[in-house]
Design a protein around this nucleic acid. Structure first.
Length: 588
RNA sequence: GUACCCAUAGUUCAAUGGAUAGAAUUGCAGAUUCCGGUUCUGCAGAUGGGGGUUCGAAUCCCUCUGGGUACACCA
């Protein structure tokens, strides 16, 4: 049992014995002791005063005495106002080292799906997608590490009018250009024609306006948009020529995406395609009509009235019987559940769709789906750049591939300036630059709470000092260097029994918090917690490293202990960075 | 118009309703210069305004201001 568990186990007993009252274990408030006070674990005694009927100070004293007598590892305590600070014995912390870095959560028997990425096949990925992919991947890794069985899913938006726009433009202006003939990455090639369509479409609109039409009219009557709509109808009717072009261009796009995913280091277990799911959901409509959840308007369209829930009336099926966005999502949700029967399902989607998911989940609940309570929208904010915000419709998008390449190039330049890569082969160098460049990007994007907008500064992210990925990578490399020089294996066993210095103890306390941190991160769906924990650990280790000697120590036991402490730190850093999708080098 | 989200040092981020609001960066002063230089220490600097709830509020409630997003028979 960990010391926290022992304390939480003993506290209700203490309240019962001392004050003849019942207080459940989860009503107690444990926290890390602030550094300016003695101790490592603090019990907040305010909530207990309602049972003790005594002042916070007296309650703290009484509980402190009780805990000290009941738990051998509680070595001492002090009370400051409503805070009972417990000092845990050095031997407890030294013993905890053996487990540090080895924590493995037991399977919790639950299944969770994380759907993320969800690209459109008409253009390449941009910075916004990057945040989505990193978040989804990291949350999936965190859940897996905390005991879930995880299914990573990708719902590809491969049909619709926007796809037809790229196709039509390629037909008209492409001259048979292919990725092979042009050397362009497939998704970029298709994206190029999407942009070309938009340009030509706008020109047509302007021409119509010049002829005296209103903007509204010209938007609808421009020949290109009419053609695109016709193409969509032909696609839905199964027209072979259109389908064949669609397949060809999709192949290009997927090859391009695959490359970007590989560079990013993300993966998926299950792909869903909207071309297969866009007709789903009509069963749910039938079901809802029968149950009286939906109602039909005189024109035949189907609606749900959510005004009682503070939302609006929402269309779920058109009068002509065709689906809308939410119809598909109802069907797809059912399909996913039928496929995997998961307990929870997480949608990683930008916060501009908050309303959509609120409605979607509410409808599924009203339809009586008992799995609806396990649905969660992991909503995230936009990514801004110092030069201004990036949004696809403003044409200032930062392309994901360009960004990744630039990060790696910057990593290369910075590393070369430092001149620490002598003795590396070309291949090792490339690998290192990739690790640093992507580590910088990933860490910077993940350390911020998902729902907040974030400002991405590429230069700051790749700084080798401060709260950055490379700083943590550097700390790891430095530890490895020490371990190598000492010829120290991974065995963290130690027989050390001396007194701890404060910097040693701080590192040990931090290491021991990993299991709780992992559970919290899983619960909150928050890679940011993991990132900030890792940074804290790296900082504490650096302080220890600076204050204490390791390699030149005469005392074998102490030296061995400090090496073991270093090894456990490196192991934990590697693990938590892995949860963020970030690799750490042994040399840099 | 209605709803939702956000607002913390100059800047970028933290803080399960708990102590004197932590870091990073910037600036200034210093240490180490020993195992790896990118390490460490100190100083300076912040909860948008106004009410309320609470033993205790950056956090919960109301209101105002500012920023964003959504309210499509688009996806």
């Amino acid at each position: 049992m960990t010391i926290e568990e022992q304390i939480l186990h003993t506290l209700p007993q203490a309240v019962s014995d001392l004050y003849q009252a019942i207080m459940p274990a989860n009503a107690f408030n444990l926290q890390e002791t602030r550094k300016e006070f003695d101790g490592q674990i603090t019990v907040v005694s305010f909530p207990i005063t309602q049972f003790s009927k005594k002042s916070p100070e007296v309650t703290g004293e009484e509980l402190g005495t009780y805990l000290q007598n009941a738990i051998p590892d509680v070595a001492a305590f002090n009370v400051i106002k409503g805070f009972l600070n417990l000092s845990i014995s050095d031997s407890y912390w030294i013993n905890s080292l053996e487990q540090a870095g080895n924590y493995q959560a037991t399977a919790n028997g639950k299944k969770v799906m994380v759907e993320y990425s969800s690209p459109n096949t008409n253009k390449p990925l941009h910075l916004g997608h990057v945040r989505n992919n990193l978040l989804g991947y990291s949350v999936a890794e965190i859940l897996a590490a905390s005991g879930y069985e995880v299914i990573k899913a990708n719902l590809v938006n491969d049909r619709g009018i926007h796809i037809c726009k790229s196709m039509l433009a390629w037909q008209k202006f492409g001259n048979g250009e292919t990725p092979a003939s042009s050397g362009l990455k497939g998704d970029h090639l298709v994206g190029k024609y999407y942009v070309l369509f938009d340009k030509a479409y706008k020109a047509e609109q302007e021409a119509l306006v010049a002829q005296g039409k209103t903007e509204e009219e010209s938007k609808k009557q421009a020949p290109l948009i009419l053609e695109a709509q016709a193409m969509l109808q032909a696609w839905e009717a199964g027209d072979e020529a259109v389908l064949s072009l669609w397949k060809t261009m999709n192949t290009w796009v997927y090859a391009g995406f695959e490359q970007t995913y590989t560079t990013l280091g993300v993966d998926f277990k299950k792909y869903y395609y909207e071309s297969n799911t866009y007709l789903l959901g009509k069963d749910s409509i039938e079901e809802g009509l029968k149950k009286g959840v939906f109602f039909k308007k005189p024109d035949g369209s189907v609606w749900i009235d959510l005004t009682a829930d503070g939302l609006d009336e929402k269309l779920v099926l058109r009068a002509d019987g065709t689906s809308v966005y939410i119809t598909q999502d109802l069907g797809t949700a059912q399909l996913k559940y039928d496929d995997f029967g998961m307990d929870e399902s997480i949608y990683v989607v930008g916060n501009e769709q908050d309303y959509h998911f609120k409605v979607l989940f509410l409808i599924l609940e009203k339809l009586g789906k008992n799995w609806a309570k396990g649905l969660y929208h992991l909503s995230y904010g936009m990514v801004d750049l110092p030069s201004g915000k990036m949004k696809s419709r403003e044409g200032t998008v930062v392309d994901a591939d360009d960004l990744l390449a630039e990060m790696v190039a910057t990593a290369k330049q910075r590393t070369e300036e430092l001149g620490k890569v002598e003795g590396f082969t070309e291949e090792e160098k490339e690998k290192l630059y990739h690790m640093i460049g992507l580590g910088a990007l990933k860490y910077f994007l993940l350390k911020v709470e998902p729902k907040k907008r974030l400002l991405f500064d590429p230069n700051e992210s790749i700084d080798f000092q401060g709260n950055t990925g490379p700083f943590i990578q550097y700390t790891h490399a430095r530890i490895q260097s020490v371990l190598n020089k000492a010829n120290f294996g991974t065995n963290a066993k130690t027989n050390y029994s001396g007194a701890l210095t404060s910097s040693e103890r701080d590192v040990l306390v931090c290491l021991s918090q990993y299991p709780a941190l992992l559970q919290a991160a899983a619960q909150e769906h928050s890679p940011a917690l993991v990132a900030n924990y890792t940074y804290e650990l790296a900082k504490l280790y650096n302080k220890f490293y600076h204050e204490e000697i390791i390699l030149k120590l005469e005392d074998k036991e102490l030296k061995n202990f400090r090496l073991a402490l270093s090894a456990a730190t490196a192991k934990t850093i590697k693990k938590t960075m892995g949860l963020l999708g970030i690799q750490v080098p042994n040399k840099m």
